[in-house]
Amino acid sequence: MKKVLAMLLVLAMAVSMIACTQKGGDASKAEEVTGMTKAEYDAAAVDSEVEVVTYVQAKQGWWENEGVGMATFYTQSEDGAYFLYNMPCSKEDYDKMTEGTKIKVKGFKAEWSGEVEIIDAKYEILDGSYVAKAFDATSLLGTDELIKHQNEKVSFTGLTVEAANDAGAAFLYNWDGSGSQGNDLYFNVSVNGQTYSFTVESYLCGADTDVYKAVEGLKVGDTIDCEGFLYWYEGANPHITAVTVK
């Protein structure tokens, strides 16, 4: 009798464990997690609550404010990009979130000097992955169309490096050259007769990254291809993550 009872208990346990496992596995399929579409997000007013499902493309940095972890992310889904600014986030989760990680984000839409972003957000890490392909925005530089791709992963090809100051430097530490190695890098590029200012954001790509070193090695007149994220500050201010000298 005891043996039978023990067997029954073991069997019940095993069945329940399998059931539990299957339920967990099915959940992500059964409950398709959705948020706003990019069009709905664009239509939402500044200061309104927004909820999107998106994928981490790059991490700008993690820091602590009075013991609360905060992180800033460049994210993108199939239909558009979202910049998540200073989202409360533990270091553990920040390390867990890599390129492609799917997340659901609920926060408030904000606009800061033209940059549309989600702030005061909460997140949930989901199963799934998506890494966006860079959109070639070269032909949109200087046009009103460019802003439609704000925050997206973008590429620019066939650019010519122009002098960043009167002294003929190819790049500057800080926008006016007031900084030193480790600060943001600013460099000018031209295409189709127009000159644009690009930035290597030091929190996103620090002094030890390939792109930072590549920009430090640029010479005026070099022809380059760039990839990065279409950040906005009083106009287009691409945060460059890769530079290829041709």
Partner: peptide, 9 residues
């Protein structure tokens, strides 16, 4: 500290 001002640097 400088105010992002190259003259100060």
């Amino acid at each position: 500290k400088n105010d992002t001002n190259k003259t100060q640097t």
